[in-house]
Write a protein that binds this DNA or RNA. Structure first.
Lengths: 160, 160
DNA sequence: CACAACTAAGTTGTGCACAACTTAATGGCT
DNA sequence: AGCCATTAAGTTGTGCACAACTTAGTTGTG
């Protein structure tokens, strides 16, 4: 930042920028996680568990596969997570009768009831961000665009 | 989205919005991670390991404490990570002579040399985002603002 | 019908994040 | 000097993400 900084190699400048954007995204992601951790502690849920419950509350009972499509998570992540939700009495898991490969995840009564207590979470989160609804929608739009582009790029990079 | 949807309770609407922003941020974070994973595989680094190396390349040798301040990570995360970087021959760890509590993390020759190969990473990442430099700077600014607000909010929520 | 290709869940192993704790060294205070 | 609060690392345990693999059930094709 000083006037006497010798012009750095352009590549090194990129490295600096990369470091900055890396940090920002990583830090934002963890900061968000931290706020959710604090707020969700009352409900006895982790952040990813809360995401699963949100989908079930909105979509109703779903097979693990569909749940994974909504959340972009695979069974390697979901299986143990769902076991913990089951142990907590919030969901039940049953083999589908029609397709024995599939496992249906259902909300229990306690799981359904928890929604009432979860209703206050979003307000607290939005207030924690300090953003208004429009800003949040805008940020969401950018992030979605980013995610779409990144997913496509990962596929390309992966197939090199 | 149908015209016959009964007006949902406002609280439920918030829950929907929360679900959307949650997902977006979580997905963006993981998508970014995924692109880095692919690109960094060549260098034999994970994303957090890359972050550590970026700091060391820019700041030079540092004690674990300082490293953690730059990255907002504690020794619980850094200690095992640094052990792996040491095992990979990229850094060395030595107790400080002046303060025996402190451990100095130093780049080895291989660690310093790796920077050359890392120089191409940022270009590939930026290209993967599909954003131009100004958009990236803008996104970074928003994310930093968000992180700052969230960290402050987590403290408040935590002290309830 | 038989068999190969595919699909859904689950398992295993690695690495990260974080809370809670332990260990050891330091520095202030009486 | 002696003691105690503080500090730096490291350790332990829980949970998530993901790759690679296994198991079992389904479907398409000859």
């Amino acid at each position: 930042m000083t006037a006497t900084t010798p012009t750095p190699a352009p590549e090194a400048e990129w490295l600096r920028l990369d470091r900055q954007i890396c940090f920002s995204l990583h830090a934002a992601s963890r900061a968000f996680n931290g706020v959710y951790r604090v707020i969700l502690k009352d409900l006895g849920l982790t952040y990813p568990q809360y995401l699963v419950m949100l989908v079930l509350w909105e979509e109703g009972d779903l097979p693990v596969k569909k749940l994974g499509e909504h959340l972009r998570l695979d069974s390697g992540t979901l299986s143990p997570l769902l076991k913990r939700l089951e142990a907590a009495g919030l969901v039940s898991r049953e083999r589908s009768a029609r397709d024995e490969r599939s496992v249906e995840v259902r909300l229990t009564e306690a799981g359904t009831a928890l929604r009432e207590r979860a209703l206050e979470v979003p307000r607290r989160i939005v207030s924690a961000t300090g953003f208004d609804v429009d800003e949040i929608r805008d940020l969401k739009a950018r992030l979605d665009q980013l995610t779409g582009t990144l997913d496509a790029a990962a596929l390309e990079e992966g197939s090199r």
